[in-house]
Nucleic acid binder design. Structure first.
Lengths: 117, 117
DNA sequence: TCGATAGGTAGGAAATAACCTACGTATAGT
DNA sequence: ACTATACGTAGGTTATTTCCTACCTATCGA
């Protein structure tokens, strides 16, 4: 009746972009990408913050669907869930045309300047 | 001596991801992409917030290099600067492999289930 | 030159994010 | 059963973001 949980009640796109806004969370994704599934312990070792703070970051990543977890004994292995990132790529697509145009302009400019050398 | 401006003194990557975290700012980028360069007035018309609040969003987008401005009379035309978005694309690249793998798995699964139909 | 328009800055309030210290829960090992 | 380990939740504080109401500056048009 009173949804005030901020990040949870939002569109998937918002949750994903918001999750990626933190350098800590992007680093977690990188660690999972390069090191494969890992327990929280292992991941948290790369950061200075207290455990509950780190848990919070994991919660945000989970809410965005960017990580999954699997219990194994008393440890929880987190793994990368890359599929939601396709939403970012799709968001990016219509902009591609614009940066290509712009980079072509820059290339042409550099070519003309190349005559001087 | 005391750099506490938050968004200004950060890596370019951080500024870009942080800028994209807001739905308002993503919408501004879309408006510029679809409508071409526009004065603040025109852009602000799509949002309910007060002007200074909107100015702040423009400031964040400027700090990220995602928009540029050109004065014309008493209006300022903002335009999309898409090149910084290539940084997001590059960030995304190493994850591509993972979502492709995952989507293949899903495809295979669906194919096998297709035997039943 | 005066008033209106376009858009910014200053300063502060409210909302949210990020972090902390307890503390609770589940599992493993003894 | 008892203790240690791995993580999470609760509750609260601090930092940052977001938004607001003045107010300042520049340009346009009468």
């Amino acid at each position: 009746m009173t949804p005030t949980q901020t990040i949870e009640n939002q569109t998937a796109e918002n949750r994903i972009f918001a999750a990626l806004a933190s350098p800590v969370r992007r680093e977690v994704l990188r660690l999972l990408r390069e090191g494969g599934p890992q327990p929280v312990q292992e991941l948290a070792g790369h950061f200075e913050m207290a455990r509950p703070s780190f848990s919070e970051h994991l919660r945000v990543l989970r809410a965005a669907g960017l990580v999954g977890e699997r219990k194994n004994g008393r440890r929880r292995f987190y793994r990368l869930e890359a599929i939601p990132l396709t939403e970012v790529q799709e968001w990016l697509t219509p902009y591609e045309r614009f940066w290509r145009e712009r980079m072509n302009e820059l290339d042409n400019l550099l070519d003309r300047m190349g005559d001087d050398e």
